[in-house]
Design a protein around this nucleic acid. Sequence first.
DNA 1: AGAGTTGTTCTAGTTGATATAGAATAACTT
DNA 2: AAGTTATTCTATATCAACTAGAACAACTCT
Lengths: 118, 118
Amino acid sequence: MLVRIEPTSDEPLFEQIAASIRSDAAAGRLRSGDRLPPAREVATALDVNLHTVLRAYQDLRDEGLVDMRRGRGAVVTDAVAALAQLRNEIDELVAQSRHLGISPELLTSLVKEIAHDR
Amino acid sequence: MLVRIEPTSDEPLFEQIAASIRSDAAAGRLRSGDRLPPAREVATALDVNLHTVLRAYQDLRDEGLVDMRRGRGAVVTDAVAALAQLRNEIDELVAQSRHLGISPELLTSLVKEIAHDR
DNA sequence: AGAGTTGTTCTAGTTGATATAGAATAACTT
DNA sequence: AAGTTATTCTATATCAACTAGAACAACTCT
């Protein structure tokens, strides 16, 4: 389990951390029952504040991707199965989007808008 | 042409304005050659600063969705055709995502991550 | 040519989210 | 009982978002 961030990006650190873990989940690198590394450990490894990592973990919990308990840590839920199932279709959409010359930013914005509107 | 925003949302105003216009474009309500309303007009109508609207317009220009010139305003480009083409597939993805119980936020984040990674 | 329109650029100030820091606490594991 | 880990609290610093006002440059229309 390796969390990657890009300190120079304009994306918030907590969002990058969460995105990295979501990506691992969708790719099947994280399975139901797996434990995320302790927040303190990630914070030290990335040279980032503990609260920043916890913010990312809490977002993942709000999305239903992990369960969190003190002393036990963050454990991946069954929801990851659905992610892996969606993965192929997202790949196809991204591929066609590229073929049409639509930027990742524009595609993302469109999906966001449509997903929220119905 | 009607731009809608939600002042209470945590989404930046300029992003909401841009998203509203992208949505109109993808739905076919905006066609190549159509003019966006003047930024000053939108600013007054939404009770928002001129710079905030221009920031949204400039983002749309960076995405290739509109051309902008002083005195003439913002004109929709041919790129909208590609958007309308993608629209159906995005609708399908969103539908399946809902069926799997995946939140709009999670779906959006996944698409963003995957679109940028390849 | 002249007047009006519209985006561009500049300076400046306010607010809120992001991130950091340190500490104490509560729930869980071994 | 001891160690681990998330939770909660206060506090501070920084930066993006937003606002405000003004001047400017390129385009349209009469």
